[in-house]
């Protein structure tokens, strides 16, 4: 095996790991760094449950190799809350019952946060298309879309 050493930053923390180049960033986050919040629903970039940001860019961590993390800034669902304070999106997801089983929730949160950072006033259609790569099999998306709308409204009010 031609394992490689990688230095990266995950949720602001410096992290080093050694991995096989075939391992995805998702494999590395879960199995080597112990951050299991990102979920593997498909392994082929079709479900979005493993969504993270790499240098601020929303991606499926199953479509990124672990070795590509070298020198990057990775943000995962575990980094969304600030200490005990939940992000407004997290609050709204809970308040609006926008999760049933919750397996898609980490990916939805990472993706929706990324959207609201770019657009604090998305339309329903914009939210739905932005989240089209985040499959949810439980909710039918209704409550998820409402939670994102409510979070956007709060963020706008907070200025």
């Amino acid at each position: 095996m031609s394992n490689q050493a990688v230095s990266t930053t995950v949720n602001g923390d410096p992290v080093q790991f050694v991995c096989d180049p075939r391992e995805t960033l998702l494999d590395v986050l879960r199995d080597r760094i112990g951050l299991t919040g990102s979920k593997e629903g498909c392994g082929t970039g079709d479900c979005g449950a493993c969504s993270v940001t790499v240098d601020g860019r929303l991606v499926c961590s199953c479509l990124v190799l672990g070795v590509e993390a070298e020198g990057k800034k990775i943000e995962t669902v575990e980094g969304i809350a600030e200490g005990p304070n939940l992000h407004v999106l997290q609050e709204k997801i809970i308040e609006h019952a926008a999760l049933q089983c919750g397996i898609c929730t980490p990916g939805i949160l990472v993706a929706a946060k990324n959207l609201l950072e770019k657009n604090t006033n998305p339309t329903e259609t914009e939210i739905r298309y932005w989240l089209a790569g985040n499959l949810c099999r439980c909710t039918g998306y209704d409550k998820i879309v409402r939670a994102v709308q409510a979070a956007a409204e709060d963020l706008r009010k907070a200025g």
Binding site: T36, I93, G102
Partner: peptide, 17 residues
């Protein structure tokens, strides 16, 4: 609010894998 809500929005809830 559901009682497992915080665990599930912070990524701490433990699923099968």
């Amino acid at each position: 609010k559901r009682q497992d809500g915080v665990d599930k929005v912070t990524g701490h809830a433990l699923y099968g894998a």
